[in-house]
Structure formats: structure tokens, C-alpha cells
Amino acid sequence: MRKKIGVLFRKTQKTAYTFERLKACKHCHTYHVLWDTHCEECGREYQPIRKLSASVTRRYVQTRFLLMVLFVCLAILCAKSLPQILIAGGVGILLLALFYWMQKKYGSYERDAQFLPFLSQEQDAIKKSLVHHLEEIGADVKAERYKEAYEKIREIGHFIHSDTIKIRKIMFLNHFILRKDMELELETVTPSTYDKDFVEYLREVIKVQPSLVKKSVLDYARRYKAYILLQENGEQLMGQIAGAALRMRPYIDQYQDLIIEFIDFIPRDRFLRLAKLVHTHRHEGWELLYAATKRRVDAQFAFDPDFAGIS
């Protein structure tokens, strides 16, 4: 077993949309998803991508406006007489005013509509920047700066949902002593295939913060049950997972089979919660669960005052 280190992760920003994490340098045409506020190349301040897109859209509007002015000027230049000049000028000014008013009123719609095309246009640049970040992480790993590496890959993970990223995250996380106040993640690191490190990590996380066990983790546990059981203390881990599933009724419904199978390995406090739940609520389809619960209560906790009067 490796020696684990105690760390304190920097706070990560919470955003409504993932794209809000993207920041851009206008000058270098690069993107940044980490915590820096100024471009490492030129030192200019990063701009939120939304703002950048808005300014591009604004320029398109300006260009159109100037094009109109140009047409008006050409009309005046082509005018052959004084009345023609006046008409051209008058109509031109009217048109420009109309355009300005419309822009005021409906400009925001265009800004939003333009954002998606802008993003798809910038896709390549964004990818390039992410790849650049991944390279930095590689350098950090080499220098054994696991904390920085994890912090960076955590940010990148918002954009890339691949097993590679997840497995690397777990690799980094397994270097640290886990604490509850760490904003630990579990669901976002669950890989699609069986991974021994992940199971290791899961064991640790369940100890610290069992509330992180959610549907995807439960599915994972059910799918790779056989592998997990091959691990040392596999049954205990499965019992802990089943215990964690007891937090919510829908989970109990869905993972009844898992709970029943490993009911004997569920820790005592969690089992007490199950027994109380089973006792107070009568649900259709829970018959097997009742039976299993009763069997274990009868077998292990028949004389336990906490379980008195439950079964």
C-alpha cells in the first residue's frame, strides 16, 4: 500500500453550464478552463466565452450597419441632382434609424442564437487548449505534483467524460487521504468497465461519505459484483454499498436483489435503518426483503434492545 498524503483541494467553481467554465484569450486565440485569470502567453486577461461571443456578434451587427452606411453614401455619390441627394440621404438616415431600433429590441436574441454556431466554430481551438492542459497534467505527474494534477483533471473532467480521464482521476485520488470536507466525487469517476483502483477508491469513499453512492455506482456494483467479491473483504464492501443504497426508497426498490444478497454484510446501523423502514412501511414487492430482514434480525439481533419490537 502506498503512502497516502493529506491534501486540501482548492475550491472549484460552481456554474450553471459547463461552457461557463471556458475562458478565452482574444489575442492568442487559446482557451483556458483552470483557475488562471491571465493568459500565460501574453498576460492579457481571460474573457468568459459568452462575452467573447457577444462581442463577435456585436461586430457583425456593426459591420452590417457600416455596410448600410456605405450603400447610402454610394446612393448619394450616384445622385445626379440636388433632390436626388436629399432623397438618398433622407431614406438612408431613416433606414439606419430603423436598423438601430431593431437592434436595440431584438439584438439579444441574435446574441443567443449566434452563441451555438460560435461554439462549434471554436471547437477545434477549445480541443487544442484542453489537449494543452492534459500535457501540463502529464508534466505534473512526472514531477509527482498529484494535487495540481488532480485539480486540473477535475476541471477538464467537466468537458471530457472518458474512462481515461476517470481512471486517471482515480489514480490521483488514491494518493490522497480522503476526508468528508473534500468535495469528493464518485459518480463522475465511475468508469464504464471494471477497474480495481476505482473499487479501492469506492471502499474509501463509502467510509468517509456514503451519501455519494448513487445510481450509477450501484449499477456498477451490481454489474461487476463477481469481480468485487474476488477482492479482499469483497462481501463487506458489497454490504457497505447495499447499505448506502438504503438511503432512498427508489434505490431500495431497484436494488432489492443486491440488498437481500448481501443483507448479512450490511453494517449494523444501516441494517437497523432497514429494519425500521421495513417495519413501518408495508410495500408491495418487498416480501423477500421482509423475509430476509426478519431472518437476519432473528438470527443476529433477537436480543438487541434496538431491534425490540421491530420484527
Partner: peptide
Amino acid sequence: SSYQKSLWSRNLMLVLV
């Protein structure tokens, strides 16, 4: 970048105007 592109086309138009 489209940012640059928009800047240039706007400026060109400005000169013409």
C-alpha cells in the same frame, strides 16, 4: 479566430465608409 475575422471585416468596412 472568428473574433479576429469579425474585427477585420468591421475595420475594413469602417475604412470604406
